[in-house]
Structures are given as structure tokens and as C-alpha cells.
Design a protein around this nucleic acid. Structure first.
Lengths: 116, 116
DNA sequence: GTAATATATCATTATATACTGATACAATGA
DNA sequence: TCATTGTATCAGTATATAATGATATATTAC
């Protein structure tokens, strides 16, 4: 269904996690952990195409995970909240312990993080 | 691509988040926050079909987010680590502040959490 | 004005994945 | 043994979504 006024808290939370659940968006978020970056910066860092990066940034922005600061031709993106980085860190730590399980999970395939 | 020996840490982390990024799986995780539950319990709580619940549980188990304890005909599922609940809580808090953003994000549609 | 640069958006396509019904498997009890 | 119950798995389908190339928009420089 499309988002409606009855959209539940669970649906919202799932959507929030979806922001983290793609290797491309994750690469972008990790890059932004270092500080504010322009789209071009992120294109260079990640190796993804510019429209792809812009598209993911739009998603991340719409979902409140990043914010933009427009200046001239440049758009400077940064994490919107310390808790975004905190979530990434916590996931990292959890992953360290459950890595083997995730690694062996063949239920879902994953794209190559270098722009498949 | 399929998971290979070159699967990066970013891909793994994305996959971890994918466990949280679906309303059905999230409902299951939230239910498990209350404690150990059988598949039937979860079917009743969530209203999803049994194969659907089993399938999501398999995913969550493969990815290390939940563990099973088999006893007779019953399979008792529980969260595998305190950090799973911690991640859920942190997301809740983040959501409270960025809720408007997530709410207005129409980039992705979401399924009805009551088994669409 | 025109060119160049930075970014966003669109239409399209290929793939991923959530769901269902049917069915298999396993354990218990009569 | 046979029926029942709890769970897992499979094939098939519909939908979601990530990626691309083309293009639009906006700002700056010449």
C-alpha cells in the first residue's frame, strides 16, 4: 500500500531501517560519518554513478537520515543526527559477533557494492 | 551477485539491517522483545500466515538476529542478543525525532503490516 | 549571451523479495 | 498404525526497488 494516514509505527520503523539496508546507501552513510560531503565527493568516494548517488541521497533525506545544506552549485550532505552514527556503530558491534550467521545467510542475495 | 568470499563488511551490514527493514520481520522482532515465542504464538500475534512467519524467522535466524530452541514439536524463538533490542530502541528514539521526515518519504511504498 | 559544472529527475529495465497455497517433515497421542 | 499438530520448504506470482542513460534545472565563469 501507499503511505496513508493509518501508516503504523512499525511501518515507519521498517522504512527507517530500509535507509540502512542497502549497500550503496550504507556506503554513503559511512562516508558521511567522516563529515559533510558534496554529491561529487560521494560519487568519487563510492564509485557509483551520479544519478544513483543523488537518488539514494534523496531517499536518505526524505527519511530524515541526512540533511542538505545548499551552497551555490554544491549540495553539502551530512548525517542528520548523532543517533544515525550510533546505530551504525551498534550494528557494527553486533555484526562482529553474529558475522558468521550473516555470512552464511543465503536467503537473500546482495548486490555488489561497487555499482552492479 | 551471490554471496562470495569477497563479500564486504558493508554488504554484510546491509544484510543485517535488511533483517529489520521489513514490517513483518519487525513485528516478529518486537513480539520477541517480550520473550521467547513459538511459531504458532507469532502467527497468532501477528496475524500473518504460518509459512510467512516461518520464512521470516528463517531469514532472521540465518542472519543471526534470533535463535531457536527446539523442544518436541515446538520451536521456541528468541532474540539472539541484547543489542538487537537495543537497536530497535535506538531506532524508536531516532524515529520519534525524524518521524515527520519518514512519514513524508514517498520514495518507497510499504506493505500493510497486516499481511497484504 | 554561451559554456561548463553540480545536482536532480525521469522512463525504463532487470532483479530481488514478500506472499500464497500446497505439501513435506517431525513429534505426539489415540 | 493412523490422526493430529507444529513447523519448514517449495513453486509460482506479484510487487518493489536499484541501476542506467537521457535530460532538466541551477549556478558560476567567460
Amino acid at each position: 500500500m501507499l503511505i496513508t494516514s493509518t501508516t503504523s509505527s512499525i511501518d515507519l520503523q521498517a522504512k527507517l531501517f530500509r535507509g540502512f539496508a542497502d549497500p550503496s546507501r550504507l556506503s554513503i552513510l559511512l562516508a558521511l560519518r567522516e563529515g559533510e560531503r558534496t554529491v561529487s565527493d560521494l560519487v568519487e568516494t563510492t564509485g557509483f554513478t551520479q544519478p544513483n548517488v543523488s537518488n539514494h541521497l534523496s531517499c536518505l533525506r526524505d527519511c530524515g537520515l541526512v540533511t542538505v545544506r545548499q551552497q551555490g552549485r554544491f549540495a553539502y550532505y551530512s548525517l542528520s543526527d548523532d543517533r544515525v552514527a550510533k546505530l551504525l556503530l551498534l550494528a557494527d558491534e553486533l555484526l562482529a559477533d553474529v558475522a558468521r550467521g550473516v555470512y552464511e545467510c543465503t536467503r537473500y542475495t546482495i548486490r555488489d557494492s561497487k555499482n552492479g
